[in-house]
Amino acid sequence: MTEAVADAAARGYVETRRAGRRVFYAIVVLLCVWVLLPIYLLLVNALSAPAEVTAFPQRFWPSFDLGSISFFVNFQGVLRALWNSVQVAALTMILSIGLGAPAGYALSRFDFRGKEAFRFLVVMTRAFPLPLLALPLAVMFIRVGLDDTIVGLALVHTTLALPFAVLITFSLFSGIPVELEEAAWTLGCTRVSAFRKVVLPLALPGIAASAVFAFVISWNEVFAAAVLTIENRTLTAFLLQSLNVSPLPLKFAGGAALVVPALLFIFAVRKYLFAMWGIANR
């Protein structure tokens, strides 16, 4: 009797678990479709002949016709915008690591008044809406003469990328035991040479990842780029501007040109991005 009850309870438990797992996989599939389907369609169309883009039904496999891509590359102003994007992103990368890594190091190694408040503020900068800043920023940039320049846009992108650079490098440096540095000091190193010979080699892969992330943030940013540049548009701003007037194949090719590098970069550095949010490296 009691055995039967226990049996039923056990069966009930197994069934509940099985149902739970089904829901879990359904959500996983849904999220994957949500993220991957647009990327898939983007790639198929970018790699298909211009005529096939508007065809119905859509092809499952792209025809690997480079017509759209070559049209995009040869489109007036695209290459220049691409070059601008690379310049702005590279400058953003240098600035945000140059400023962010020392801040991350200080946060991980020193106790100072207001440290927690500082960490909080670093995150809070992300909560400040850029559109609110855009107009005063544009006015100020015009006054200073930074409007429509690579440097000016890179500065704005740096403010966007800096919090991430600080947080990633903070967790990176925190993962390197202080004793290693102390051992280096007792073995004849100054603070600087201990950093160069011990901390930097250990942190370098993570710093590189953080740099790539900053690059991607700038690469993908469209709002500030559209507001603050006119002549020297980055690729995102350029595409936004010509979206209405450009043919569909161009849109797809441009979208792919923006998404693919960003995706590859993020995939390469994903383990460090997880570390930033405190998820163990896997």
Binding site: E179, L180, E182, A183, A184, T186, L187, G188, T190, L202
Partner: peptide, 19 residues
């Protein structure tokens, strides 16, 4: 600073440089 004191130190968790 530690480097000018003529000392060497051995730490509890070894502090052997991993790289």
């Amino acid at each position: 600073p530690p480097r000018d004191r003529g000392i060497s130190m051995v730490f509890q968790n070894y502090a052997v440089f991993p790289h």
